[in-house]
């Protein structure tokens, strides 16, 4: 009996330890503070007077700048990858927030760039915002909204893709070369945790500089032909065939509203899911919310 009671006490101590572990995760203060702005309008608050410079960039990776092979064998080369983003927020949290924890509800500090900004990711990584007196600290959450643009050719589209897709048809010994223009109207808010990549980003020391990056994974739409066909990415990606099916006179000119009405339901759902997972922070995925 004595051993049982001691064992119960041990278990009790252990479970209190586990309680402490969880309790630490909820110990953050929910204070917010003001930050000033330089190059773009900023909203936010801070207690500290120690500041540094944050640059915010958008990156479509090599898929947006170089021709690549899709999961279904199309060689895709973009002329434009126009993405329009707004309400970009650089946020500090402690403890760090991760997407698996659900909606973000605790912030130590938040800086906001209103936008909207329409960026062409086919031109390569693009810096579109600078905050020269941002409060020092760890900016470990990045949130933004992809919203419809207002200028041609992306007017009405939050994401507009144009370029050339080519595929060799072995049966007919013929190379198909299609021009494509694909527009997506969806407004989606992405919330990512700390940047995942070869270099750590988001740690701002007083007087220092850091970079935050919105990363768009276009391979989630088209897949990556250099990976095995049963790779998780390629199994989920719609590929280009779903768009090529609507080619007319060598041109694929479609938007999401048309596709939703004309694609088989399974393909339509897959396409919407791929779009929802487009936004990343480096290789770190984001929580998404359709607006």
């Amino acid at each position: 009996m004595k051993r049982v009671e001691r064992l119960s006490f041990s278990i009790g101590i252990v479970l209190f330890s586990a309680l402490l572990s969880f309790g630490c995760a909820d110990s953050s203060d929910n204070s917010s503070e003001t930050a000033s702005e330089t190059d773009v309008p900023i909203e936010g608050q801070t207690e500290t007077t120690e500041t540094g410079t944050i640059t915010i960039t958008a990156n479509g990776e090599s898929f947006s700048t170089d021709a690549f092979l899709s999961a279904d064998g199309w060689l895709i080369d973009f002329d434009h990858v126009l993405v329009t983003i707004a309400d970009v927020e650089a946020i500090q949290t402690d403890p760090p927030w991760i997407p698996e924890n659900g909606p973000l509800d605790i912030m130590l500090c938040s800086l906001k760039l209103d936008g909207p900004f329409t960026l062409d990711l086919a031109d390569g990584p693009m810096e579109f915002g600078t905050v020269s007196d941002a409060p020092a600290g760890a900016y470990n959450v990045l949130r933004w909204t992809m919203v419809p643009g207002s200028e041609s050719p992306s007017a009405g589209y939050s994401l507009y893709l144009s370029g050339t897709a080519a595929k060799y048809d072995q049966q007919q010994d013929y190379e198909m070369i299609y021009q494509f223009r694909i527009g997506f109207q969806e407004s989606i808010r992405y919330t990512g945790g700390e940047f995942v990549g070869e270099v750590r980003k988001g740690i701002l020391q007083p007087g220092g500089r850091t970079e935050l990056e919105l990363t768009f994974h276009l391979d989630h739409l088209f897949g990556d032909g250099t990976l095995p066909s049963d790779n998780q990415l390629n199994r989920a990606a719609p590929g280009f065939d779903v768009f090529a099916a609507f080619m007319q006179e060598g041109v694929v000119d479609v938007d999401m509203a048309f596709l939703r009405d004309n694609l088989p339901e399974e393909d339509s759902i897959r396409l919407e899911e791929a779009l929802a997972t487009l936004g990343h922070v480096g290789e770190g995925h984001c929580l998404h919310e359709r607006l």
Binding site: A18, L19, F22
Partner: peptide, 23 residues
């Protein structure tokens, strides 16, 4: 720590408290 506790973690926390008190 793995971020803010969700519902499963809160349930575990409650069990921890009760079991700890009994022990």
């Amino acid at each position: 720590t793995s971020g803010s506790p969700g519902t499963p973690e809160k349930i575990i926390m409650t069990v921890c408290v009760v079991w700890g008190l009994i022990g």
